[in-house]
Design a protein around this nucleic acid. Structure first.
Lengths: 232, 232
DNA sequence: AATAAAATATGTTTTTTAACACATTTTTGC
DNA sequence: GCAAAAATGTGTTAAAAAACATATTTTATT
């Protein structure tokens, strides 16, 4: 298959985080950034690996997950183009504390840790932007902890579906989720077994909240899903 | 009861975070910091409150928690003197996303949000320190999510006990936990009901892993507790 | 297009955890 | 120090979720 060559502008035009950099710093960035291609299902970094790069996703989808007990994995974050990842470990020069894998074929910009840290430490405004991004991630993580521990299966699944809507939006029809996720991944987002994700999604379909056609999920009653998500 | 008056030095001598401030900024800090006393069980801030202050704990103990479904609460973080809290919400000028309550009578320094943000934005090194602190909290939160969702009851309780040891250490005897926590709080840390915390702790005592005398917990076999925590 | 492999659907059983009940002990507030 | 309130201990029942089993459908590979 012929690979589509897409052109992407410089990093600082793609995410406001980098907009704080000076002309000189942008020069350095341009020199250091590499464009890398990852195939579907390829691991980008592993939990425990020495942190070497900060990535910005250009095209495709990536998910960040942690391996838990007995190869059960928890999906921590879902990424879409122009999201930045791997940056937390780089700021503290620690190993990554989660894994990232390409859910689809992906194109990314990657920047080595040394340059990233140089920018953070030399440019206060850039450091501030990185800190704000981290503050968002931290709030999300704490909310997620409570959601995943206290809501019941139906609430957790509804929550995940709504999160997918928020993150990836709909197809042109305005109701089909623009993300075709295997049930196993839905389970790994929602802290449940695959068979419970399958069963519960089928129930949602029977109740007319969604309609399913393989991995294609059409949201029919968002209000009710929100209610289920809210009430546990 | 007469209240013990303790003397505490300036903030920048008590946590390295503030050590990056210039002489001038320290002056500002001195002018703006207030010393506040909270009684046992007093709420310091509530989830959803407009963020007004950043706090540094001077004496006593504080816990940070989130209210979940049906008044079940999840303890997110336990604080000891010189820990800083409430800072995440202040950096993003958002409401607090968790609550803080004084577990014992507490003395704190508190700094208004405006001054805190002024310092962050004017001093890159200070911003960097705050970012590093946030990176630690984020790593902890993500690990915690997986621990609380995937480990079984015994694993979660063992984990919490070890966390208490790490945070508060032992009494002079070198084995009694220097934190007398009601079973309910142990449950709220470990994502379980109070009766399961009581029951499971009793089991640990029967197995000789700990000995219990009311709220006084003596750790007898840390190695085994670690094993239980690790294996789920 | 055919075949193998993987994913989905659905029913059943087992395990885990919460919920409830109640006696006993400890702590708290006057 | 005393009474009331709260916390602890223990047994029992109910609910939730995982584990297991197996058929069917979909997807991937040749």
């Amino acid at each position: 298959m012929k690979q589509r060559v897409e052109h992407f502008g410089p990093m600082w035009e793609l995410s406001h985080i980098w907009a704080t950099l000076t002309e000189e710093e942008r020069m350095l960035l341009s020199q250091q950034v590499e464009t890398v291609y990852y195939h579907k299902n390829e691991i980008i970094h592993n939990d425990g690996d020495e942190s070497q790069y900060v990535w910005m996703l250009l095209s495709g989808k990536v998910h960040i997950f942690k391996e838990g007990i007995g190869q059960r994995q928890q999906i921590i974050r879902l990424l879409k183009p122009y999201d930045i990842f791997g940056y937390r470990a780089c700021t503290v020069n620690e190993p990554y504390n989660s894994s990232a894998s390409a859910f689809e074929d992906c194109l990314v910009y990657r920047l080595n840790r040394a340059t990233f840290n140089e920018l953070i430490q030399s440019n206060g405004s850039f450091c501030y932007q990185v800190m704000l991004m981290m503050a968002k991630d931290l709030a999300f993580s704490e909310i997620q902890t409570v959601n995943l521990t206290q809501k019941h299966i139906r609430g957790r699944l509804a929550e995940s579906i709504l999160m997918l809507v928020k993150n990836y939006g709909y197809e042109e029809d305005g109701s089909t989720l623009a993300m075709l996720l295997p049930r196993e991944d839905l389970a790994n987002m929602s802290n449940m077994t695959t068979s419970n994700a399958i069963r519960t999604l089928s129930q949602f379909a029977q109740e007319g909240l969604v309609s399913i056609d393989g991995r294609r999920i059409k949201i029919l009653d968002e209000k009710s899903l929100e209610k289920i998500s809210r009430l546990g």
